[in-house]
Design a binder for these strands. Structure first.
Lengths: 186, 186, 186, 186
DNA sequence: ACTTAAGCGAGACGGTACGTCTCGTCTTAAC
DNA sequence: GTTAAGACGAGACGTACCGTCTCGCTTAAGT
């Protein structure tokens, strides 16, 4: 027999969905710089106040709207550690190739300059899970490197893939995985 | 006996200097997002029209103002190729550690999403010279790898250093060079 | 049981009043040429957008702000038609002597060169009512002149009073009415 | 072997003419509000500084450029004083009908609000000569009215013609003269 | 059924910055 | 010394978004 946990009109799921859809459409159509609150409100048929009631900044909005697209998948632990590392690299490349990824990841990194909190949240929510499981795979594949060495290899992988796919927009990702594997494991 | 090469009042070197100084001060004080044309004009004691007369966008302004800070130095070719590669990595780390570098490089990358031309100019002017000479050093140090392999190694170096120093803001850069050297040459 | 007749936040009467007051103060202090949107906004403690939301041009703003000062009063129809014509002339002289009248009437006439619509609105709203009732008074006082003759006499009255009080800024208006009465009625 | 009476390059008559022509063209094409110094300079193929060297304001410029069009002709003194008054009214109507007159006279009056000096110069140079000779004609035609009465009649004439032709833009000026004559001389 | 309280749309509000325009002044080299 | 060219500081233009606010109206749960 619980108390009314929240009196009043409940949050409109319809508005929430319309807003997040509008954010995705706007990001794809106009990029992060075109993601204005007014544009989102207008496209979603929603009042600006409703957006601000639930998301403090457009960064938070973009992050939540694109969440499903930018979360890097975790790496399973099979009994073939090399295959697991391969799989970690695949996850990374695949995520970075998604339509919204480039837009939102750039924004997250660039906004990080002004707003470290958002950058931290981005990493914690969307990168960290992959990082932990990928680290485990590398540790096993390399036969027990110390943590610093593993973290370094993760940075090599992330940095290189980021550079190739997002900064240089190199479309050919086929040999990227093999080159990285060869580099790391002799 | 040449004709007047440029009629009219010549460009004021004083205004130019004041503007570029104001840009640097503003970038350091308020970041790229605080770099408004009005702020620069006001700090430089200059009219907005004068800024727009010479720079079309704040991106161009930031690039020119920070130019000296973000140009990665080229790599000399000595008869110790390994030392040359070390030197290339040093140049990169040292450039990325300069006060303005983080701000402007993030901006260049983020703006690149909207304005590929600026990203291209950034690379051509400030990165490419280093890249060419660093590639040559790697080629010699590795005993004549093919170009694709060399480019890949450059991306590994740039990506890793970018990731470590700018994205993760890892202050400890001491072992970064040695880890990269060890990774590449065995 | 009516529906919400106007959705959204209602117009701020405070802002409206502050703007119109600021317009009047600015007109008196700096004339029509000093009536900039920025000056009004600043003096009224209001954003420029709020002004533009409700008035399309500074002309419309001046007209509305000064409306009460430049509307020429209508002429009552008593059973002494000569007294009514006198009263019509008095109204005119009195209106033209008000503090804002000179500034705004000049502006309305001068702007009329570029923007006939504003001149038309000025006449329709602030002059026409007087003109109709004054015409009726003249008609009765002259014993039924045809309309063209009456309109001509109105132009004589308006033109002469305008010339004397506003163009020549002749302060002595005492004999103006009597001279006009004498001219028109022998 | 005379001394150089004025050292240096003499004033370019060509530039002067080009400027005044450009002023007239601009006034006709864009009205007084379109008469910007930049527009005149550009149309005349002349530098702005050259304009400012010789005319202090655009008002002075307009007045000089349009001078020939807005000077009201003087009234001859024949032995038919009534005909002379008629002639005075004709001069007025004819002047007010010239292409540039409306534009410049409005400007002179409107600018008069800010800059009384210009209004005074306008009257002294372009209206006063007519006014003196017209006053003389009226004095003779009315058999020696006192000066105040004559000045009043002049204001009636000027005011009425201004009102009809310039403010109301009434194109039919045929009966205007006769109505004024009838009003003044019974 | 009635009350209460939050959610919602619409849209006005004070601000800030935008990029453009014209002003009147200035600085140069050519004439 | 005057000219054309054109850069300059100043400051208003009208527009776009910002984040906040004030309305009247839903929409449900608790009475």
């Amino acid at each position: 027999m619980q108390k009314n946990p929240q009196p009043g009109r409940p949050r409109s799921e319809k508005a929430r969905t319309a807003i997040l859809d509008a954010v995705r459409e706007t990001l794809l159509a106009s990029g992060y710089s075109g993601l204005t609150m007014e544009a989102v409100a207008s496209r979603a048929g929603v009042s600006k106040a409703t957006i601000y009631r639930w998301w403090p900044t457009r960064g938070a909005l973009a992050l939540e709207a694109a969440g499903g697209q930018i979360a890097i998948g975790t790496v399973p632990a099979t009994d073939d550690p090399l295959a697991d590392v391969e799989s970690a690299i695949d996850q990374l490349i695949e995520t970075f190739s998604r339509p919204l990824a480039s837009v939102v990841i750039f924004a997250a990194i660039a906004t990080g300059a002004d707003d470290p909190e958002m950058a931290a949240r981005f990493r914690a929510e969307y990168v960290y899970p992959w990082r932990v499981t990928a680290a485990e795979a590398i540790r096993r594949a390399t036969g027990g490197e110390d943590d610093e060495a593993v973290q370094f290899l993760l940075d090599v992988i992330v940095g290189t893939v980021f550079q190739r796919t997002l900064v240089l927009k190199e479309p050919n990702t086929a040999d990227l995985k093999w080159r990285l594997m060869a580099l790391i494991f002799r």
